[in-house]
């Protein structure tokens, strides 16, 4: 009675094939990441030393360390986050909690999604025109970070909006029915429950900000600078640009050097991400602030 028919056998085989296909694709996705990491560690590992991290490049950037670039990237990421997170979260709050659902908000949403698709070199040119020239910030950390912030805003807005939408409507109704204003509802119920999702957006943004080269190359980052930036109106070196320069523009760079820079860049991004993931876990545990 319960013997498999021909049809059952065929279904089972088809099932197996699809499963195998999906599994293969997943492995293929993970494989490049592992290969990249392994290559970086093997080839770049020997370059890593305290001197490499805390000294400035010397001898036409073929020797010495990467300290100014490391500090520069931290500056760029920090200033970009300071600009884009408040702006993006505020915009997302407006769009999901206040704005009525009409054609204007739909156009705004569409514009935000399209902004995410703009190539980074176009953002770079926009940054030159707007921040370097029009606002007169010159090529500086401020101009570069503003450009990076504009570029990553869609990520922050979209992930924030998603996490706001994930807060159950019942919580909001409970608040409203007790006479809470929208801001009280946001402050006491919506934000505390959405904050971990918002941090996910920030994590994505950190990775992208730290790694971008084109936007900062035209707006504030330079090939070589023998001193550290003192403020947001200074120019700076950056890891991503430094990597580009020593692997393509400078002759006679020992092979382990670019790999070392790449390894440091990835490690830094991973550490920043780990920090915000830790923060997220902490906030999730509290759910109240």
């Amino acid at each position: 009675m319960f013997q498999a028919t021909k049809r059952d056998v065929r279904n089972k085989n088809v099932e197996f094939l699809w499963r195998l296909l999906f599994l293969t694709m997943t492995v293929l996705l993970v494989l490049p990441v592992l290969i990249i990491l392994a290559t970086l560690i093997v080839k770049g590992g020997p370059a890593i030393s305290l001197g490499f991290l805390f000294l400035e490049p010397t001898n036409g950037m073929t020797e010495g360390g990467i300290f100014p670039a490391l500090v520069g990237t931290l500056w760029l990421v920090a200033v970009a986050l300071l600009i884009s997170v408040p702006l993006g979260v505020a915009a997302a709050l407006y769009l999901s909690e206040y704005a009525p659902d009409n054609w204007l908000t739909r156009v705004i949403n569409l514009a935000i999604i399209n902004l995410a698709g703009v190539p980074s070199i176009v953002h770079a040119l926009f940054g030159v025109g707007a921040f370097v020239l029009f606002f007169g910030f010159g090529t500086s950390i401020l101009a570069a970070s503003l450009t990076l912030a504009v570029m990553t805003l869609p990520v922050v807005i979209v992930t924030t909006r998603e996490s706001l939408l994930a807060v159950p409507r019942a919580f909001r109704e409970a608040c409203w029915s007790m006479g809470a204003t929208r801001w009280q509802t946001i402050r006491r119920v919506v934000l505390p429950n959405a904050v971990s999702g918002i941090l996910t957006g920030v994590i994505l943004e950190v990775s992208r900000t730290a790694g971008e080269t084109a936007p900062i190359m035209l707006t504030g980052a330079v090939f070589f600078l023998p001193f550290l930036p003192q403020g947001i109106f200074d120019q700076t070196m950056a890891l991503s640009l430094h990597l580009f320069v020593i692997s393509t523009q400078v002759p006679n760079v020992p092979e382990h050097l670019p790999y070392g820079v790449a390894l440091v860049l990835i490690a830094m991004v991973l550490m920043l991400n780990a920090a915000s993931i830790g923060f997220r876990v902490y906030l999730r545990g509290r759910k109240k602030w």
Partner: peptide, 14 residues
Amino acid sequence: RKEVGMVFQRPNPL
């Protein structure tokens, strides 16, 4: 809404 409280179909404590 302070004067007129409301209880919902599905309990919705915060």
